[in-house]
């Protein structure tokens, strides 16, 4: 059974005095159980809207969305019980309650009994590294701590499917690393995770598959490695400190298409086939240049390629 399935999912927002704004446009997305799936896209692409719909916070305008086979519009109660959601940022907590009370609150709302709650809340606080601050009011917490508490909150009902909407924006590097470990654990425990992010390395590192979304439309869903091949079926190597005369020779190697200086002293050689790469490597090594790396386009390049020259604001 698929964990998340949308068909022609569309959502428009009505703003007074303006034409309806289509935030999601006929999205078809299918995520099998146990997959960690990243949704990449710039601000305003529709990522949060999708998370809201899947978490029954918002209704679709048209099309369908199902979580573990349950329709979000007609069977919201079933969806709520099998799904956890973490919206980014540090709002959405009861600031006057302690972190333990916040988790206890949601555990109760999701129907857990007292003993079960005590157990699970304790474990989750431990897991996100807040056990020592369990009895402190949340208002004294840093942004990163609040985000970690949010993560614990999303897990409080042990949901089979977890939605994470930009969970690491503004997180410090240590928290972000712990977060990745947590996602890997969730994956090995068989949870399905749909995560939205701006962060390409994070997505590449964690995901089984990656989708790109822009302007409410799903551009592509792929394996993070395969995406590289799509953009450039060419071979590429990066060579540092390539002397000018050698550069001329490299260009003349059959099959080399371009040599560009991508940053000061670092040259990228694009070639049509492996033979050409071999030729370049030989030349370089003979000339004593050894700072050579084979490179693949990053997700970021793939993303920019797909989405065009549109700016990527990494605003919170």
């Amino acid at each position: 059974m698929t964990a998340i399935e949308t068909q022609r999912l569309t959502r428009s927002y009505t703003v007074k005095g303006k034409p309806d704004h289509v935030a999601l446009d006929k999205i078809d997305l299918s995520i099998p159980r146990g997959e960690v799936h990243s949704l990449l896209g710039p601000n305003g692409a529709g990522k949060t809207t999708l998370c809201r719909i899947l978490s029954t916070v918002l209704l679709p305008t048209s099309g369908t969305a199902k979580v573990l086979g349950h329709d979000v519009a007609t069977e919201p109660q079933q969806v709520k019980r099998s799904l956890g959601v973490v919206f980014g940022g540090d709002r959405g907590l009861y600031n006057r309650l302690t972190s333990k009370q916040n988790l206890d609150f949601w555990a109760s709302m999701y129907g857990l009994g007292r003993a079960e709650r005590r157990d699970r809340v304790g474990r989750l606080l431990d897991r996100v590294g807040l056990a020592e601050r369990a009895d402190e009011p949340v208002q004294s917490f840093s942004r990163g701590m609040k985000q970690r508490l949010h993560l614990a909150r999303g897990l409080v009902s042990s949901p089979a499917v977890l939605l994470l909407d930009e969970p690491t924006v503004g997180m410090d590097p240590v928290s972000a690393r712990d977060f990745r470990d947590l996602v890997r654990e969730l994956r090995s425990d068989g949870h399905t995770v749909l995560m939205t992010t701006h962060d390409m390395p994070e997505a590449a590192d964690l995901s089984d598959r990656v989708s790109f979304i822009d302007n409410g439309a799903l551009a592509l869903t792929e394996n993070p490695d395969v995406i590289g091949e799509i953009v450039s079926s060419k071979e590429r190597i990066d060579v540092r400190a390539l002397p000018p005369e050698l550069r001329q020779e490299v260009i003349r190697v059959p099959g080399v298409s371009t040599v560009t200086e991508i940053e000061h002293g670092l040259f990228r050689v694009e070639a049509e086939h492996k033979e050409a790469v071999r030729g370049v490597l030989m030349l370089a090594i003979e000339a004593g240049v050894t700072d050579i790396a084979r490179s693949r386009p990053s997700l970021e390049e793939v993303y920019l390629h797909l989405i065009g020259r549109r700016g990527m604001n990494v605003a919170p």
């Binding site: 809201r52 978490s55 029954t56 916070v57 109660q77 709520k80 019980r81 959601v85 919206f87 940022g89 709002r91 959405g92 907590l93 009861y94 600031n95 949601w106 709302m109 999701y110 129907g111 909150r153």
Partner: peptide, 13 residues
């Protein structure tokens, strides 16, 4: 104000 409302709407409450 707190931003807990969407979470309540999404919860089986």
């Amino acid at each position: 104000t707190l931003g807990t409302l969407p979470l309540l709407v999404g919860a089986p409450v």
